[in-house]
Design a protein around this nucleic acid. Structure first.
Lengths: 137, 137
DNA sequence: ATGACTGCAAAGACTTTGCATCTTT
DNA sequence: AAAGATGCAAAGTCTTTGCAGTCAT
């Protein structure tokens, strides 16, 4: 992630866990994941390091879903889909959903603000949950 | 809000507080607001009624910002701007930021999901906070 | 009376934090 | 040795909930 090797083994493990996950994980998820490999890891450390990564810009918060803050190591602009049933989060491929600069300029003018970023989230039902729902009928 | 008049005075006051607010309020904000007018209101009641409104579709949750869930009585599709400094939320006027159905279809095909809705949030610094920042220099 | 609504306070869920200890340089 | 990172548990914050009491029909 960085060349300076200024980090601890646990910190690196936490970052590795996020960046290798395909789940846009929560703190709890990372903790559970690493517990097997690092039994003496504490949840507080996970939270602390996530906040450091966030400040560093190494990860991005996707917001709070179902009470859990979710993170993304991919900080490049892209949209997400959130399943309202199981709260899985998946990347929307391609930049098709991104606004151009004019849209932000429009918001700045209309609202009298300075726009730094934006987020686009689609909500619905994921494939897995749809299957479950159909199976129940 | 509804013709059936099946609601209590406090419930109506809570809905009135949201719908007359220009702040996309939190539960706490509504509680503080109404406390003057209704001294024996409890915060639990505010939470309970907000959840009922949410289920009824009478209000929409904008998500959690700075730890507080924020609500909007305007359930029509529109985007929002969130100030990263004071966490004020303002409506982006006009439908210019809304996607068309094809965008949702694209997401459905690419992700193999069913899209029900989406949200667009712009982040930045609001006018008031910018002024404060300039004044400090 | 019956069902709906509420106050109150306790409980829950997630996150942060203080402090002593342990690591790393 | 100094600075940084962590474990542990307590505290903090926001939200939900159980229960008994209240209100409306």
């Amino acid at each position: 992630m960085d060349n300076k090797r200024n980090f601890s083994a646990k910190r690196e493990a936490i970052y590795r866990a996020i960046s290798s996950a395909d789940t846009h994980p929560s703190a709890e998820w990372i903790y559970e994941q690493l517990k097997q490999e690092i039994p003496d890891l504490s949840l507080g450390t996970v939270y602390r390091n996530l906040n450091i990564f966030k400040q560093n810009g190494k990860i991005k918060s996707l917001g709070v879903f179902n009470g859990h803050e979710r993170f993304d190591f991919d900080t490049s602009p892209h949209s997400h889909f959130v399943c309202e049933c199981c709260f899985s989060i998946i990347d929307v491929p391609g930049g098709i959903n991104l606004f151009d600069k004019n849209t932000c300029l429009y918001v700045e003018k209309e609202c009298g603000v300075k726009v730094d970023s934006y987020s686009v989230v689609f909500y619905g039902i994921c494939r897995k949950c749809r299957r479950k729902q159909s199976a129940l009928r």
